[in-house]
Nucleic acid binder design. Structure first.
Lengths: 362, 362
DNA sequence: GATAATGGCGAGAACGTTCTCACATATGAG
DNA sequence: CTCATATGTGAGAACGTTCTCGCCATTATC
């Protein structure tokens, strides 16, 4: 009844008058046991309030039935949804979830991965914060740790991966704006990168139609690429003054660049934001400047946040299947943990353009 | 360099030419060791890519340096923020975080708690889904498991607890509406309860000014109580037709009741929503009915969600310190884990009314 | 009636750590 | 010189499970 203190298998065995081996068998459910002894053991376990110690079990089996996740920031709706997806399938399969935040910083990510590895998780789901320098992830793979990447890839790291088809999604969104008659379309993207001159070079190459290794690009660069492709396809020039780099994953930074964009001559008639945080920053800027959507500026966002549906006007946006992405990643990871050995898979999930009222026809 | 496969302390000891005891001492940092052997061991550990097995360590020390959390739903902004707060202090103290969702269902919560206990977490943070029936939590406490409750209390369970001062916060919000000249104020609250007749009885008692044991009330009931108190203080009658029960923690349910309220005679001039989900449901209803804030209806919400600041008009709301609540809970839990033994503490955090543009003066 | 296969059980060795000893050596005090 | 104290080391026992044996019955096979 009242589980006083911790009872072990040995205690249960003693109370039931059997060996620890037998008690272990019925409690662990892994060998032959007579109905009679089984009853005794179960009774004793019940009385003593026996609770198996997963630590000891894991130590010997080598399996913890725990998944590790290193997300960017749990508080961000994108990660929150992805995590919920992961959690759903983990729970359905009896797995626990060890969760950490990297804040998109490589050092914190390395630290997280180390913590999770020490705790002997059976597999790891990571949104890598650096698509180039990721020795810790390569090591993980070399040691045989099942690993699934979400949202981004790592150059040269052949592991399972699930992401949105960013280029196609962005291209569709921007072409939608062009089809509505817009010719000057701004884009606000995170676009972090060590080399600050990279944006111009990238623009030049993309506009020229040079082939670009897009797989290992950060999502915001991929979405920028989609933006450029849309322009190329529709025969529109890309004005570099309209490609805004926030430089960090922060709504404040986005607000600042959008504010500047809308208060200097040569304003766009439409704006494309490349993720939830950029969308929030843009909205703040527009509110501050008292600009009306879509009269003063049309808007298409990336990622469907709760408020976009009841905002007036409704915000047209590219909806990523966040929950499904998490679920898919978790499922793939569990398959690897079970030992299945296909070649590394990349699941590119389609995003859906949900049209609401934030785009004006010109 | 390249950590081929798992190296144990014994492997390192062998490579360094010392006993496992000595190797353990330098790697674990817990005894005397000469500088010379220390170097050898460290070198060997480096070469072999030694990574301590936290399972084995925990098994013998009895400490896992892992906190368990059972939240309602990670995807909900309230829980997402609280979790981030918990995560911040956990990380700063070198603790891992095992997270589960209860979806506010007792059965799932029991299951979660059992999982976390088996995994031998050092302590547990729970948002209990049932304030009365919680034997699993009583058991936990009886077994000496450090436990902190967030957002809600459990009748008769004397453990540390952190919550918002809901009654005071709601009272302040409603009085703000009354001061602005509103006389018919609606309230939308979750108000789940087994007995469906309870709302009327509760209303009758509260309006009469009968003393009510408010500590173990669900937050939505507490906020309703604050609403009633505000009316009493200001000498205003409470019209039961204006107290809306969504009945479940769902935006859809809230949308439905608000829709009905605003389309039947005797509409209120202001509305108070008691949590983020209710706010979202109310916003959907208002958008659907094309009602303008604050011209057609004034609004005060509970919990400051991202969009409320850039919505036009800005939404006046009661801001809970979600992050700080999580941090406080984690800090209290860590103190208990360290063995400090004050009597059970209740931390009631003040909420702040942030005034924006959703309240009209009548 | 011997041999083999099967069900049921217990002793004891794992798993990879930490921890308790006992013991060795060096240093300082009297 | 002797005793105490501090520093360093290794053997081996924990921790609470699972797993591999070997043993004993019982039943099936020829």
């Amino acid at each position: 009844m009242t589980p006083k203190s911790k009872a072990t298998i040995a205690d249960v065995a003693r109370a039931a008058g059997v060996s620890t081996a037998t008690a272990g068998r019925v409690l662990g459910g892994y060998g032959y046991t007579s109905e009679e002894k089984k009853e005794h053991v179960l009774k004793a376990a019940q009385d003593l309030g026996y609770r198996p110690n997963a630590l000891a079990r894991s130590l010997i089996t080598g399996k913890t039935r725990t998944l590790g996740v290193v997300a960017g920031d749990i508080q961000n709706p994108f990660y929150a949804s992805v995590l919920r997806g992961i959690s759903n399938v983990a729970e359905a399969n009896g797995f626990g979830l060890l969760i950490t935040n990297s804040d998109e910083a490589r050092a914190k990510e390395v630290h997280s991965v180390e913590l999770l590895a020490q705790k002997q998780v059976d597999g790891l789901i990571v949104t890598p914060s650096d698509t180039r320098k990721a020795r810790h992830l390569h090591n993980l793979k070399a040691m045989g740790m099942p690993l699934v990447l979400i949202d981004r890839a790592v150059a040269g790291l052949m592991v399972d991966r699930v992401a949105t088809d960013n280029i196609a999604a962005a291209e569709q969104a921007v072409r939608h704006l062009i089809a509505a008659g817009h010719r000057r379309i701004g884009i606000v993207a995170e676009l972090v990168d060590e080399e600050s001159g990279k944006l111009d070079a990238f623009l030049a190459r993309a506009v020229a139609g040079d082939p670009i290794e897009s797989e290992t690009l950060y999502p915001s660069w991929q979405r920028l690429l989609g933006y450029i492709r849309a322009h190329r396809i529709e025969g529109l020039p890309v004005d570099p003054r309209l490609t805004l780099r926030a430089g960090s994953y922060s709504a404040l930074a986005a607000q600042a660049v959008v504010s500047r964009l809308m208060t200097t001559p040569g304003q766009p008639t439409a704006l494309f934001t490349t993720d939830g945080t950029m969308s929030e920053g843009a909205m703040r800027a527009l509110t501050e400047l008292k600009l009306s959507i879509p009269q003063d500026l049309s808007l298409i966002c990336f990622d469907d946040l709760d408020w976009m549906s009841f905002h007036r006007p409704g915000i047209t946006t590219v909806a990523q299947p966040r929950l499904a992405m998490g679920e898919a990643a978790a499922r793939m990871l569990l398959e690897r943990i079970r030992g299945e050995a296909f070649p590394p898979r990349t699941v590119l999930m389609p995003a859906e353009l949900v049209e609401r009222g934030s785009v004006a026809r010109l």
